[in-house]
Design a protein around this nucleic acid. Structure first.
Length: 916
RNA sequence: GGGCGAUUGGCUCAGUGGUUAGAGCACGCGGUUCACAUCCGCGGGGUCACUGGUUCGAAUCCAGUAUCGCCCACCA
């Protein structure tokens, strides 16, 4: 009853009081797993599988994770409500280099190092570390509301992944797509490992370009000439020690005669040839380039092309090797200083100047990367990339938003082979064994091969490669390694390939491309149908969030202050696919306020229930009787139907920001501000019969039910809590999470237009009163002139007009002339022109404060309205006067313009009359 | 060097050919109406970065320019 309002729900919206309990109910009901006891899939629909990037196990989650989990959860909840059997398989990534980087810092604080612990104890320490972080991270995901199938939780270092790594690598090797070779790799001296091209960050820096004179050998004596020199330019003088040639452009007249002669490399006293090669840019530096094939990518290519010796002068710790002769053992930068000093004292330092350059730094440690020659394992990417490209070109896999297809094409077209060896400990050991003769045998068996496949030597003589795989190698197997591959398990058959792979665009190459490449080769199918890429969450100033900048927002803190629903809404609302977003506390507040609004709207509806319904939650949801529906009820129903359609469209487009915006507007500005306010009138009107009042209430319940369902994927906790307090249909489940997605009812555009006309009248009356300074509390008589087409609706909604426009009594007159008469009967009147409806607010003495000022305000308002109408009318007429417009524009546009013109002409006329 | 994105009210962002470009926040005025002050009502505020083009019609499509951001790329 009306006196027991809010009985069923706490008065205040306090998310912390119920979010945890709701999550527990979902777990108890076992609805997350596709085969869970509480899942209610429709067997006629195909399974829906979401693929998530397993977060690095290194620590706490940040807002980017919160966004990714929110999007995944929105998609999976939507699909679940649609009736799809859903699988969201959660997991964690061992993140080898990132994890080692973090652990190294932790053990450093304990006075230990990687070396002091040794491989075995280091790995034990790592397992201890991640066993702590794992629970913290999973707890965070649950707080956010992630409805993942925790029973299928996987880790990229578990035995399933390990086996997939071994088997896949063996297969790639057998298929000629994995090979071991000496190649130029990116070496990080800080991490003591090679890293992939993607992990090298080109960083702009001002370096120095030194010019150095190399002495040519005298043709006759074979000794370096004192003054016959060629000057080369370099930013890394320490690499002189590894020079094996000097290159010039073949058509460079300055040097043409020198090609074929030799120079002596200083300090190492090596005689090397001057060669001609078109890679040399004549305009840069001196036009002569020193060639260090073991330490520069260009030079390496040149060295291969010309058959030059490749001399490694840098060791693992970036000190100079024995090949560096007198500089051996020095750090690379110390050696650089000494070499420069020595060149200067020899008189061979020809010049130096500041030089803007890009220097490669390690994504992890920020150390300067050194290109080095190493024997490593590589994955041959050419054929794999080709297959990945055909999958996207054929549409087997679709990228959302589509603009990323171009980046995708470009990267996969110019891809280099993938160096997968890492000189780290935390990760999957490369399943390659070597015999004393150096033959390699790749095996998928955990204990390695029986014997060397080349020379047949036995197991006692084989040793496994000490290196591990690049983390992304195992991540790349994720979509199928988690489903039991290489076995054709039931899960694999049922859930592979996945439906949507959701991740940030920043790992499209690291992860998405690798999954596609290995996935297609190993399983003969692209691992997912849709790639959905989200943008980066940045701080309020547009800066990327990072621990070092100290601008990270902790999702847990946000949840603690505003609730998980608020955070989820804040992360989605006003965003679009693939675009970065700035996150600020205002977004969080928007979400919290919205949830609060919904909470209170539901409290109102519950409290307004008819006396015949003792307990709303126990009542059976009923369609209101059609005959008992008034314009308000029909309008509410039509709006709800239109919202279902708009939200469906947004979901189809993967436009979740749009879905949230549509719902925010429909629920707040539509349902609450107008629907409930209009409904209140009839609910409180005792002159209306009981059946009609009940129909109004059921209309509110029905609409609210629809909105809660539509909003559930985005704000699951508050919608679940509220839905539980409302009546349900007989075939509804206990929990909203497994309830069915609503189907759109009928939209009634004509009825909507008529009701909108009344709303416009109410707004206009409010506006006129405010502009004239009428006291908000005073009720004033309102005279109305309503066209016949609108009269039934206006009369039906008269009580609402009285209440919402604070107008009473209402009098209806035949036309504008009669209205003028009615106005004349009052001390003064405020004219209102709202669409086709004219009205006069009749003022008594003293109703509008100082009447002079009020008159001026009133006049100004009407003049402004008239001005706007006249401008619009003029442009409308100009358009209709244009013969080409009439001839070429489609008929419905022309008709619309005509109607518009008539409407405006009418409005102008009425406003002029009011001002006269 | 190549590519992508952004540029819309003070701020954050929607809006991909058709009335007078929208929202939230912020701002101003008013509000103790029995869901909500985490609220309600009313209002002010934008020549849609610039130039040109296509079109009956452009914030929207095309070309170019500028600024900012990002990605890719082997000038030592």
């Amino acid at each position: 009853t009306m006196t027991e309002q809010g009985r069923d729900l706490p008065k205040a919206y306090v998310p912390a009081d119920f979010e945890g309990a709701i999550y527990e109910r979902w777990l108890e009901a076992d609805v997350f797993a596709p085969d869970g006891a509480g899942a209610r899939p429709d067997p006629s629909l195909p399974p829906f599988v979401i693929i998530q990037p397993p977060p690095n196990i290194t620590g706490a989650l940040h807002l980017g994770h919160a966004l990714t989990f929110t999007l995944e959860d929105v998609m999976i909840r939507h699909a679940r409500m649609q009736g799809h059997e859903t699988l969201w398989l959660p997991g964690l990534d061992h993140a080898s280099i990132a994890a080692q980087y973090v652990l190294d810092k932790i053990i450093a604080a304990e006075g230990e190092t990687r070396e002091s612990l040794g491989r075995e104890r280091y790995l034990e320490r790592m397992w201890r570390f991640i066993n702590e972080t794992r629970e913290v991270m999973l707890g965070q995901e649950r707080r956010l509301g992630a409805s993942a199938d925790w029973g299928r939780l996987r880790f990229t270092m578990d035995e399933g992944s390990a086996r997939a790594v071994r088997v896949s690598f063996k297969q790639l090797y057998d298929d000629g797509l994995a090979y071991r070779a000496e190649g130029l790799i990116n070496w990080c001296p800080g991490c003591r490992t090679s890293v992939s091209d993607l992990e090298v960050i080109p960083t702009p820096e001002t370096g120095t370009l030194w010019s150095i004179r190399y002495h040519l050998l005298d043709d006759v004596t074979g000794e370096p000439s004192a003054d016959d020199t060629i000057t080369v330019a370099t930013t890394r003088p320490e690499t002189i020690l590894g020079d094996t040639a000097v290159a010039v452009h073949p058509e460079d007249d300055r040097y043409r005669a020198l090609v074929g002669r030799k120079v002596r490399i200083p300090f190492v006293e090596r005689d090397v040839p001057i060669i001609a090669d078109e890679v040399v840019d004549r305009a840069f530096g001196t036009g002569a380039v020193k060639i260090t094939p073991a330490h520069d990518r260009d030079d390496h290519a040149t060295g291969v092309g010309h058959g030059l010796p490749m001399i490694s002068v840098l060791a693992d710790d970036a000190t100079i090797t024995e090949a560096g002769d007198g500089y051996a053992g020095l750090d690379r930068y110390e050696a650089r200083k000494r070499i420069l000093a020595d060149l200067k004292s020899r008189g061979d330092l020809a010049g130096e100047k500041p030089h803007e350059m890009l220097i490669g730094r390690c994504q992890r440690s920020n150390d300067v990367i050194e290109p080095r020659l190493k024997t490593q394992w590589f994955v041959k990417t050419g054929p794999l990339a080709e297959a990945a490209l055909s999958a996207t070109r054929s549409g087997e896999t679709r990228i959302v938003p589509a603009r990323f297809e171009k980046v995708w094409e470009n990267w996969l077209t110019n891809i280099h082979d993938w160096n997968v060896s890492r000189q780290l400990w935390w990760g999957h050991r490369i399943p390659a064994w070597y015999c004393p003769d150096g033959h390699a045998t790749v095996s998928a068996e955990i204990d390695g091969p029986e014997r060397c496949e080349v020379c047949g030597r036995g197991p006692g003589e084989l040793t496994q490669d000490p290196d591990i795989f690049d983390t992304w190698y195992s991540s790349g197997l994720w979509p199928f390694s988690t489903l039991g591959w290489p076995d054709r398990t039931e899960d694999f058959r049922r859930y592979y390939p996945g439906s949507v792979m959701e991740t940030g665009y920043d790992i499209i190459f690291f992860w998405v491309a690798r999954m596609m490449m290995t996935g297609i080769h190993l399983t003969d199918a692209a691992p997912f149908h849709t790639v959905y890429l989200h943008g980066i969450v940045k701080d309020p100033y547009g800066q990327r969030m990072s621990k070092t900048k100290g601008n990270v927002v902790d999702p847990l803190e946000a949840i603690d202050t505003a609730g998980a629903d608020a955070l989820r809404f804040g992360l989605l609302n006003g965003t679009s696919p693939g675009n970065d977003q700035k996150f600020s506390s205002e977004r969080l507040e928007d979400g919290r306020n919205f949830a609060n609004k919904l909470w209170n709207a539901t409290r109102f509806v519950l409290g307004a229930r008819p006396a015949s319904i003792a307990d709303a939650a126990e009542a059976v949801l009923r369609e209101p009787a059609a005959a008992a529906l008034g314009p308000t009820e029909r309008w509410i129903r039509s709006r709800a139907a239109a919202t279902v359609m708009a939200v469906d469209r947004a979901y189809e487009d993967h436009n979740y920001g749009e879905a949230s915006r549509v719902l925010y507007d429909a629920i707040w500005a539509g349902f609450c501000d107008w629907g409930i306010e209009l409904a209140k009138v009839r609910l409180a009107d005792t002159s209306v019969d009981e059946a009609e009042r009940e129909a109004t209430w059921w209309t509110l319940v029905d609409a609210l039910d629809t909105y809660l369902r539509l909003l559930h994927p985005i704000m699951p906790f508050v919608t679940e809590a509220l839905w539980g307090a409302l009546p349900h249909a007989a075939d509804d489940p206990e929990l909203l999470i497994v309830a069915r997605w609503p189907k759109a009812g009928e939209v009634a555009p004509e009825l909507e237009q008529q009701v909108e006309a009344v709303l416009e009248l109410i707004r206009s009356v409010r506006n006129a009163r405010a502009a004239a300074g009428v006291a908000a509390s005073s009720r004033l008589p309102l005279a109305l002139a309503v066209p016949a087409s609108l009269e039934p609706v206006v009369r039906a909604l008269a009580p609402a007009i009285e209440r919402l426009a604070r107008a009473a009594p209402l009098t209806f007159t035949a036309d504008g002339a009669a209205l003028a008469v009615a106005s004349g009967s009052a001390a003064r009147a405020l004219s209102v022109v709202a669409g086709q409806i004219e009205a006069a607010i009749l003022l008594g003495e003293g109703d509008a404060g100082a009447s002079g000022a009020a008159d001026a305000g009133e006049r100004a308002r009407l003049e402004k309205e008239l001005g706007q109408a006249e401008t619009a009318l003029a442009s409308s007429r100009a358009r209709l006067a244009d013969a080409t417009f009439l001839a070429k524009a489609p008929p419905h546009i022309v008709d619309g313009a005509r109607a518009r013109e008539a409407e405006l002409a009418d409005r102008v006329e009425k406003l002029r009359a009011s001002l006269a």
